[in-house]
């Protein structure tokens, strides 16, 4: 990898590490076939494609195909093949939940494979597949906000929103992008398929580990907790706190309200414990020594060189000690 390419991806490395760890697979092993992607019907018109980086949600219907997040760039062709097992209709829209390359890396390839007559490339007048996202995703990719993530221009969002929500209607379904300020990053959207009763959460909700709080890109634990509370406002279970509205997590399993409420509870409890220790005058080292995440580490702990349970605690300390 040359130095320029290295710089492009340097900012994304923590996320790549998390994606790899959470999926317990390594697509880069020389000479080995990458693991097959999982294609799982979620509910209504919505499917999950897992194993390409971040989770990918696909909505299909007579109007065509809408794709939420596109995985790592090296997996884009396999994602396209997986989409083709679900529908032979044209890919019409791509939506990004946030800027990280394990969710945006396939934008160019997947966008180029589709078409949308309603949207034209400003330079060549060719129809293009519009990529929707919160405006900070475009700002970061275009350099308006300095950021080491550097995707080709064709991978950038061409239609963004800067308010709290953005409405669409496609395949007979109302779809709403809802901005979650300063959560996993500063540009998170959750994507709510209202008829299918499915929400693609991006990385504000994971089932694999503690959340990665990308402070350098405006993330915060409080923003993630707020986003989870908003998810809970939207999710309605079927009987016995099971089924009903389903959430496609950023990494890991499909969930209903119960899993989301447990994740919210855990993060709230950890926050309260760390704040209590800060109020007692403890230093970051003392807080870590007190093991405020001890009872959850066996389930959600993470220990890579770039993101770890220890760093998770330090990050929360820094946020609430201010």
């Amino acid at each position: 990898m040359n130095s320029r390419a290295y710089r492009r991806w340097a900012g994304a490395l923590p996320l790549l590490a998390i994606a790899a760890a959470s999926l317990a697979q390594d697509d880069s092993r020389d000479g080995e076939e990458p693991p097959a992607l999982s294609v799982i019907p979620v509910q209504g018109n919505v499917y999950l494609i897992a194993g390409a980086g971040g989770n990918i949600a696909v909505q299909t219907g007579d109007d065509g195909v809408l794709v939420v997040d596109t995985g790592l760039p090296e997996n884009a062709e396999r994602v396209l093949a997986a989409i083709r097992t679900l529908s032979d209709r044209p890919i019409r829209f791509v939506v990004n939940t946030h800027v990280h390359p394990d969710h945006t890396g396939g934008n160019g390839t997947i966008g180029a494979a589709g078409t949308n007559e309603g949207f034209r490339d400003a330079l060549r007048s060719e129809p293009v597949v519009p990529i929707y996202a919160h405006e900070t995703v475009l700002h970061r990719l275009s350099g308006a906000i300095e950021d080491p993530i550097d995707l080709p221009v064709r991978s950038w969002p061409i239609d963004t929103y800067h308010v709290d929500k953005f409405d669409m209607y496609f395949n007979g379904e109302s779809i709403q992008l809802r901005h979650q300020p300063n959560a996993h990053t500063d540009g998170d959207s959750i994507v709510w398929f209202r008829r299918s009763d499915v929400i693609a959460t991006g990385d504000v909700y994971l089932t694999t580990s503690y959340p990665f709080i990308d402070v350098a890109r405006g993330g915060s634990l409080q923003g993630i907790i707020d986003a989870l509370n908003e998810l809970l406002d939207l999710m309605i279970p079927d009987r016995n706190e099971e089924g009903g509205t389903l959430a496609i997590s950023g990494h890991g399993a499909i969930s209903d309200e119960y899993e989301v409420v447990n994740y919210r509870d855990m993060l709230t409890i950890i926050r309260d414990r760390i704040v209590a220790l800060i109020d007692m005058g403890m230093t970051p080292e003392q807080v870590k020594a007190a093991q405020p995440t001890f009872d959850y580490d066996g389930r959600y702990g993470i220990d890579s060189t770039l993101w770890s349970t220890e760093r998770f605690i330090e990050t929360i300390y820094e946020e609430y000690a201010e």
């Binding site: 999982s38 799982i40 989770n55 016995n240 099971e242 089924g243 399993a253 499909i254 969930s255 899993e259």
Partner: peptide, 21 residues
Amino acid sequence: TTQTIWMDGREHPPEQAPRTW
């Protein structure tokens, strides 16, 4: 609550499938 025990030799669903009670 209802537990369904499959006896037809099927495998468990993919890891990402929803959890139930």
